[in-house]
Simulated scan of single mutants.
Amino acid sequence: MNSVSNIDDPRFRITPVQQMAAACSGALITSFFVTPLDVIKVRMQAQSRITAKNKCFFYNNGLMDHICPCNPLKKNGSNGYYRNVPWFDRPSQFTGTLDAFKKISKNEGILSLWSGLSPTLILALPATIVYFVSYEQIRRSVQDLKKPYYDTKHNQNQPLWISGLSGCLARFGAATCVSPLELIRTKMQSKKLSYLEVHQALQSLLQYHGYKGLWKGLGSTLLRDVPFSGIYWVTYERIKQATAKPTFMYNFIAGCIAGSLAAALTTPFDVVKTFRQIELTEKEIITEPPGKASKWTVKAVIDIYQRNGVSAIFSGLVPRMIKIAPACAIMVSTFEYGKQFFENKNMEYYNKKIE
């Protein structure tokens, strides 16, 4: 059974501005709920020494990855490293996730669970808005080219390949747009610059890497995120078509299932992307002289498999799914709710005009 949707009916179709409002609301809610999970994860990693003092680490607020670099430190003639991320290196002694949640809340205050949220939202919100609005615009444009049939109940028959194609193109565009901003933000963080001094970070990158340097590392990101997006939207739309009237909870569950499947299938790309991105950050972004980072190729996945087996290329699968599944579920269900809200408003306005 195909899902009934008035959102794609030309008479009630929501505008790009309304899509932006729906995506923004979803992004804020998603980051609010998911950020504590990643704060706890990186704090536990710091405790177990998984992340060395002279290494960068990834932080994710449920919407996108952010690199937290380490800074070279010279004091009294000694060499060392420090991170400009105070919450990461706070003292801790946790026995598990629940214990970490209780102790951080009690000893440091409940707001400490949302440490690092503000600066990441500066990039996450625009990236999320661009991604979801692009997906909707591409999907509807391709669908209009096929001249979809609407019956009296506006029962829409949308081929799943449209969702897959739209998701891939939208992610390609959003990642390409955000990549220079992420590199600039990382450079600012490494040099402790304020957002008002963004031009200094931009000048530093351009001086040593040129304009092409603004998109360094993009290839590995695209090779992970584009397939993820295609798999996610095809799976989500397929599940959504199984009911005539998808509710908020139904969309939530569909988003969770789709996110889990996409995360599992793209984990090998995520493993290599993480290694390459950290390597790129340490060699190309934090250091002043231009370095020579390794090129990302599919051969990297094969090399990891040959050295350490299947378990290596799927390392981090469970934590990745635990984090991505709820993030996808919250984001898509709130986005769909926002679309339905604006569609109802458009329908009311349309009916008043024809009365």
Rank of each mutant, 00 (worst) to 15 (best):
T267S: 10
K273E: 14
S166A: 15
M188E: 09
G217Y: 09
C177W: 11
K102H: 12
I162S: 03
R13G: 01
V39W: 13
I40A: 04
G230Q: 05
T334P: 00
L206R: 12
N84D: 14
I322H: 01
G109W: 08
G338Q: 07
L169Y: 06
G173M: 13
T243G: 04
I129H: 10
R43D: 07
M331Y: 13
K146W: 10
F94Q: 01
S5C: 04
G219T: 11
K292N: 13
E284Q: 15
S311K: 15
V17N: 02
V142P: 00
P326V: 02
W114Y: 14
S333H: 05
S48H: 12
V17L: 15
F33E: 06
S194I: 00
F57A: 02
E197M: 07
A100E: 06
P326L: 06
V142F: 15
Q189Y: 06
F12M: 01
K53P: 00
L280C: 08
A23H: 09
D144T: 01
C168K: 02
V133N: 11
Q207A: 13
I162H: 04
D270F: 12
W161S: 10
N60T: 07
K53G: 11
G291E: 07
F172L: 14
G255E: 04
T186C: 14
D303P: 00
L169A: 11
R49G: 03
L196M: 06
Y195G: 00
R90H: 06
W87F: 15
A264F: 15
G164E: 03
E348K: 12
K106R: 09
L37M: 14
V133K: 13
H66A: 14
K240R: 15
F32P: 01
Y211W: 12
F314L: 08
N76W: 10
T176G: 02
G167H: 07
A124H: 08
A23F: 11
R307Q: 15
T334L: 14
V42K: 05
T287H: 10
N308D: 15
P246M: 06
G96C: 03
T95F: 07
L193M: 11
A27N: 06
S92R: 14
Q203M: 03
V318N: 01
L214N: 07
C70R: 13
F33L: 15
E136T: 02
L111V: 07
F57K: 05
M249S: 08
R185E: 10
K74A: 08
K339L: 10
P69Y: 12
A175R: 03
R307A: 12
Y236F: 13
I129C: 10
L169E: 05
A262Q: 07
P126I: 04
P227W: 12
V271N: 15
D225E: 12
M331I: 06
S112A: 11
